[in-house]
Amino acid sequence: MHRTHVRVLEDVLDANGTIARANRADFDREGVTVVNLMGSPGAGKTTVLEQVVGSLPGVRVGVLEGDVKGSFDADRIAALHVPVTQINTDPSFGGECHLDANMVRSAVPMLPLAEIDLLVIENVGNLVCPAEFQVGEHARVMVSSVTEGEDKPLKYPLMFRACELVLVNKIDLLPHLDFDLDKFLYHLDAVQPGVTHIELSAKTGEGLDAWQDWLVKAAMRERIPA
């Protein structure tokens, strides 16, 4: 036996990237803009979606719900008569903590791509793992709520650097919290200078028009380079 050195120089997530590009090609062929919605559990991902998906002027929306288990979020979206497809990362206990390109690939045949203009993929609630895995999206949005603390951009820079839009949710709670919004925005700018953010409350409706407007423009490809 002898030892041989083999140069590899291959991206570890190359296989995921290849499948993500195939997903993206399918979405582009059908003229569907895809937004990957990320954030920690309880940040309000489903709620900020629920508040706008039923009423986007001129945009037909579909939702792909990624969850470790259950269809609680999908049921909430379906109640709004919006087409929704569910992926569970594990049918029993302790599934994957993120969606990857292959999981989304498996859902593509179930998606009504010909009937929608915008697909929102709600990722598994997590501030670390989803940022590593592209799924074929055109844009990434993360929801960060004011109950999570103003240090989060510094603790999870990869996630905050991976997105084109940050929704700062639950601002109706600001009077009751020690959360310093200016400090949060300073930290956000420190990890991703100039990133767009919208301050909103899914409960009172404040800021929802700006979020709705962003989605409509995204669907029209006005802000997102092809």
């Binding site: 036996m1 002898h2 030892r3 041989t4 050195h5 083999v6 140069r7 590899v8 120089l9 291959e10 991206d11 570890v12 997530l13 700018d189 200078p193 100039g194």
Partner: peptide, 26 residues
């Protein structure tokens, strides 16, 4: 300025491997 890009630091790649091969194969 805030328009910055990573030149290095985003790598996640298998650089090389060492494998055991039979002499006869060689």
């Amino acid at each position: 300025g805030g328009d910055v890009a990573a030149v290095r630091g985003e790598e996640l790649e298998v650089e090389s491997i060492e494998i055991e091969q039979e002499e006869s194969a060689c």
